Computed example of a mutant assay.
Amino acid sequence: MKLKIVFALFFISTLSGFSQEFSKPVDFLTFINKEQELIAKSTWKYTSAVAHSKSARRIDATRKQLIKSIQSSKKKITDIKNGYNGDTEYQTKIVQYLDFCEKSINEEYDKIINMQEVAEQSYDAMEAYLMMRDLVNKKIDEENDKAELAFKEFALKYNITITNQESELSKKIAISGKVFDYHTALYLIFFKTNITDLNLSLAIEKKDLGAIQQNASALLLYAEEGLEKIKAIQPYSNDSSMLTATKKCLEFYKKEAETFVPKIVDFYMFNEKFENARKSMENKSAKDRTKEEIDSYNGMVKQVNKEIENYNKMNSANFQEKSTVVNTWNSTGDNFISKHVPAN
């Protein structure tokens, strides 16, 4: 979540208050800027809720509050008659900007939320969801840059001196954007293996040897690719927790593909061989069964019981290790965002 509805600019002169009768251009500019500061505060509340709250209701409530804040400020700015002494160019550009922000947060984010519901079904769906989210954020950033340019042009037009000092609020929003970007980069690496492992588990459940081997090969490939990618990623602000958690997951998936899956395949192949032998024995009458066949079958019965016991132990151990690394990754990701996105 990276909304940048905030100007990183301050006026040199400060005003205690005024009506919409603007005697000076700086009054007009300050009035609009104060409305945008209110929107920025609502934006920050939404960003902070996403970072620090587990409540979907609270997050959506802050999003709706942000929309109301935009609507309220847009109305106040729209209601200004004749802009500043008949010059409505800056006023019009800001209203257009706020229109765009309202539509994006209200409509486009609804689309993103709908995409999020199916995103975890496949890597392509997750990638499409993240690309859509980033595209909306990029468009908002581009429109923000246009509005900021209009701000500077109005100031220059009326010889208003401004400073480029960044506000504390804009710093927080900028920091949050970097934190979410960092988390997303590692999440995609993790998710690519995680969703492949899910497909592998489904194939194992169905005892589909072809699908098992296909997904295991893909899992090994993605795990090795991921391990190479994270070598180029530096810790965030000396915090390597996300890198460590991601590496452990990738190492587990690599080990699973290389050691666990071959044993699963061997077990299913032996089990298939045993089932064929059982059916062969059942299809013969007792008098037609040779001593060698009986001895061979009885030996397979003992072996299959042992193999089943080994399989259950191996499967349980694999599941427990997987649960540990995945749960650790999820908790590490939550803690990372909570730690690095300012709380207030």
Rank of each mutant, 00 (worst) to 15 (best):
L156T: 10
K146H: 05
E142Y: 03
K171A: 02
F151H: 07
I175S: 03
F154P: 06
K172S: 05
F151A: 01
N144V: 00
S176Y: 08
I160P: 13
L169M: 12
K146N: 09
N144F: 00
Y158T: 03
K172H: 13
N164F: 15
G177E: 05
G177L: 03
D145I: 01
E148Y: 11
E148M: 13
E148P: 04
E153F: 07
L169D: 06
N164D: 15
K139C: 03
K146G: 01
G177F: 08
E142M: 11
A150P: 02
Q165F: 02
A155T: 12
N164S: 15
E142S: 12
A174P: 09
E148R: 11
G177Y: 12
A174N: 15
K157Q: 11
T161C: 00
A147T: 05
L156H: 10
E143H: 13
F154Q: 04
I175Y: 01
L149C: 01
Y158M: 02
G177N: 08
A155H: 13
F151I: 05
S176D: 12
F151N: 03
N159T: 04
S170C: 06
A147N: 02
E142N: 12
E166M: 04
A150F: 10
L169R: 08
K171F: 05
Q165D: 08
E166D: 08
A147M: 13
S170A: 14
L156I: 04
I160W: 09
D141Q: 11
E153N: 10
